[in-house]
Nucleic acid binder design. Structure first.
Lengths: 238, 238
DNA sequence: CGCTTCAACTTGTTATGACAAGTGAGTTTA
DNA sequence: TAAACTCACTTGTCATAACAAGTTGAAGCG
């Protein structure tokens, strides 16, 4: 046979997932079961599972088993330029909750200083937020705000460093530049986001500008690619 | 040691890539070399390489070796709503070329019929395009056009089914809905796009509407996530 | 009843060994 | 000279084996 065994096995499993034999969150056969069912070695059974995990169709948990990835994706609209975590996504059938991980005042790192058009030693507020979806970690947001602009209402920022909070305190956002790209989870990040190594991630980088075209806020939202997609609606006209 | 051997090896290689020991397109040490260097079995060396491939940092070629992925990403702007492959990306330091793979007239598949708001048996033009970047396959575009709208200039469409072509022939596009998500290469697709199994892909789905809010064109661009990112620039104001 | 312990399960890591298959350079052959 | 072949090297596939480590439920103990 031309196609490798582990490919044909993972194809069969993939088909079973897509045809509803195994659905969202179901446990797939264990490696030992696959060995008996298809009469292959553990290496082959393991490789077949690795294919599914690599394709984002399944997640493996040591000691528990391999489970079908919850395939429902949450759509985030890029058309209304709000910072990611502020979106009202409750009506998409997933329970969201925010968690402020850290809030501190630091000197701007080089990359951030460039984006905010400030010198590298200017103080900025750094906030890390965690977005939970049905309890599980779904996205991490890291954002930097020029500290001078938020000094007067820092306690409020600590709770929620969002566009409305800024606007209410005299720092309205008029313009947002953003970029969407795809990366992969490395070993360090997998601790925070609870995703396996090599798992695909979407990165949403943004820089928000005030009315006078001065950059105010810069940050990135790193989300699980299997749980998020981005939508937009544009009018033609250059 | 708490961290597995294959992790520490791939971390070391990753660091060497990031610090410039190996740069874009360089060949990484062979599995046998890793076995001798780190005194590990081939399984461990192989796993370390698999980590890098899984993270998109390297690509393996049978018989040749493992090479550092060309890390330069091409930015596609979502702000000017043109169909993906029409963009002028020549100035980003990559040589682009288009290739029309197929052009045929078929009955609209179910999913397409829904998007184009037509019945499932309405004829549509189906075009597949391949975008080459420096010779290598970078993206595949599959688009469907309501056949009735393009009958008069079908030969021209076959060469380039693009927004300007449509506009020149009295079918201007005024509005585009789009969505960006991330998937993974499956075994079938890897043939066409020349990417390894499990490789991350960006999918850009779009539906273009004419002035009277009628859907005209629907399609998707599937691109290598390690070569593409999407940018946008939005004005605030709901 | 509640807690602890343990055994049976799971996936993760790693070693050794073998053959298949693609690549490329050098050598042989026509 | 040019084509064909061989050989060394590469990654891909697959088997057997063992131990580590996380999970879970059942059995036993206080």
């Amino acid at each position: 046979m031309a196609t490798p065994l582990h490919i044909s096995i993972s194809k069969k499993l993939r088909h079973q997932i897509e045809s509803g034999v195994y659905t969202s969150g179901d446990r797939l056969p264990s490696e030992h079961q696959l060995m008996e069912t298809y009469n292959v070695s553990r290496i082959t059974a393991r490789q077949a599972m690795a294919n599914l995990v690599s394709q984002g169709l399944a997640i493996a948990y040591r000691g528990k088993g391999v489970f079908v990835t919850p395939q429902k994706k949450v759509t985030y609209s890029l058309s209304s330029p709000l910072v990611f975590l502020e979106q009202d996504m409750a009506r998409q059938g997933v329970a969201f909750s925010f968690e402020s991980l850290t809030f501190e005042s630091i000197c701007a790192p080089a990359e951030v200083a460039v984006a905010l058009e400030i010198s590298a030693d200017t103080p900025v507020y750094l906030q890390r937020k965690l977005l939970r979806m049905d309890g599980a970690a779904g996205a991490v947001d890291v954002s930097y705000l020029i500290a001078e602009l938020g000094q007067r209402f820092a306690p409020q920022l600590e709770r929620q460093m969002t566009f409305p909070t800024l606007a209410q305190n005299g720092v309205p956002i008029e313009h947002v530049d953003a970029m969407v790209e795809c990366t992969h989870a490395d070993y360090d990040l997998s601790d925070h986001l609870e995703v396996p190594l090599g798992h695909a991630l979407m990165v949403y980088r943004y820089t928000a500008y005030s009315c006078d075209r001065q950059p105010v806020l810069h940050g990135a939202t790193i989300s699980r690619a299997d749980r998020f997609c981005y939508s937009l609606s544009m009018r033609a006209g250059e």
